[in-house]
Computed example of a mutant assay.
Amino acid sequence: MRIRTTSTQRTYRYVRLAIIGATVFLAIGVALEVAGGAALPSVSAAYYGPAGPVFVGALSAIALALLGLSGRSLEQGLLDIAAVLALAVAYVPTTIAAGVCEPVLRCVPPEVRATVANNGVAVASVVLLGAISGAILARVQKTASRGVAATIGVIVSLTLGAVVWASTAPEGFFAMAHEVAAVSFFVLIAAVAALAAWRPQSSGRRGAGLRHAYGVVAGGIIVTLVLLVVGIVTGVERTGFPVVFVGESIALALFGVFWVVQTVEFWNDADPGLRE
């Protein structure tokens, strides 16, 4: 017997599958660069190499897909904020050790900064226009709530804060913005996974399995970030172990696992975007 589905249901399936696909796309691009002999200090450093377009494109696709999963739950609000952070990770690159960085050890190379400024202004403009449009649509569609207002407020505040930071302290912005956005992104994903593990699940083995999987993702991301910070502070990387690359790779893998679990859980939901 053919199982009938709604257009909304199929759309949300494809959006979640697109996030998984974009994550795999990024992983393959970075893996190919490493296999080609590149000694990447971090996944984010792929921005400067052959996998650069894949890095930016995959994160842009993930950001758009996260925003496409409309809803009014706390989890969705956090994912909307994470989408904006993903854009920051994509278009504001990490620092690299380059000969042009003296007297500092790491920097965003001067020849890249014009590109970052151009893309940053474009991203900030689109995010602010999107926030305004989202507020108008929420009012027209009668879906406005304090949660929606809070999410839009956080997104606008983060965007304007980034603009002010980049304008008043560009060196500090280039030195830290990528790392701040990346860590914040994964913390939000861990928070969403923790909320998913905490909320009631269907009874039986399947529900227990979902709760366990979400808990593993949430705990795994937090432990990975803590160990990453410890590794950097204690100078593990100076021993030759690529602590940042390994940490980012594990966090990225856990992000992919999270969306596999989400896809399985909500595969048959009639209207998964309107869950309160």
Rank of each mutant, 00 (worst) to 15 (best):
I222K: 03
W267H: 13
T8L: 15
V244M: 10
V233I: 15
L254M: 12
V226Y: 03
V154S: 05
T6N: 04
S145D: 06
L74E: 07
A194M: 14
V116H: 10
V156D: 05
T143N: 09
A22G: 01
G204A: 07
G36C: 03
V112M: 12
A98K: 01
T159S: 13
F255V: 08
P242M: 01
V180W: 14
G153S: 08
G204K: 08
L274E: 12
F245W: 09
A138K: 00
C107W: 06
C107N: 04
G49Q: 04
G77W: 04
V236Y: 05
I20F: 08
V261L: 08
G204H: 09
G77E: 07
A196D: 14
F241Q: 00
V226N: 06
V163K: 05
G36V: 04
A131I: 11
A175P: 02
I20P: 01
H212W: 14
S125C: 10
V223P: 01
I28E: 01
R10D: 12
A138I: 00
S167A: 15
P109C: 06
F185V: 01
Y214W: 13
Y14N: 03
T159D: 08
E171A: 15
F55C: 04
G29C: 04
I132P: 01
E276T: 13
A45W: 03
P242I: 02
V180R: 14
L160V: 15
A124C: 15
E75S: 15
L59S: 07
G240A: 08
E171N: 12
A270H: 10
V34H: 01
